[in-house]
Amino acid sequence: MTTAPHWSKSSYSGGNDGNNCVEIADRTSHIAVRDSKAPTRATLTFPTTAFATFLEAVKRQP
């Protein structure tokens, strides 16, 4: 049995209905990413360690 992922949206997702962002779901071995404007469309998945490296690089940007 597979459990449905819990999707989280950034607190920086913008005004109005907050749909100007991506959502992430933290799975055991990977991170899933989807467009909040089209949640039923395809998702991207990344190994957890690769996504953590990506986030650290983004945080270092001015």
Rank of each mutant, 00 (worst) to 15 (best):
V58H: 01
G18D: 09
A52H: 05
D35I: 05
D17M: 07
R60M: 13
T49G: 14
G15L: 03
S29R: 11
A42D: 10
T40M: 05
M1R: 01
P47H: 15
G18S: 11
T45N: 15
R41E: 13
I31G: 00
D17W: 02
G18I: 08
S13T: 03
G14T: 05
S29N: 14
A52K: 03
S13V: 02
F54H: 01
I31S: 02
P47F: 06
R41G: 13
S29I: 08
L44D: 04
I31P: 01
T45I: 14
T53W: 08
K9I: 01
T49Y: 12
P47W: 10
H30Y: 14
L44E: 04
G14P: 04
L55D: 03
N19L: 14
A25N: 05
T45L: 07
E23R: 04
R60V: 12
S10P: 02
G15N: 07
T40F: 05
A4F: 05
D35H: 11
H6P: 01
L44W: 06
A4H: 08
E56V: 08
A52G: 06
G18A: 11
F51L: 06
T43A: 14
C21F: 04
L55C: 09
K37S: 03
A32C: 01
P47D: 15
S13C: 13
V58N: 01
F46Q: 01
P62C: 12
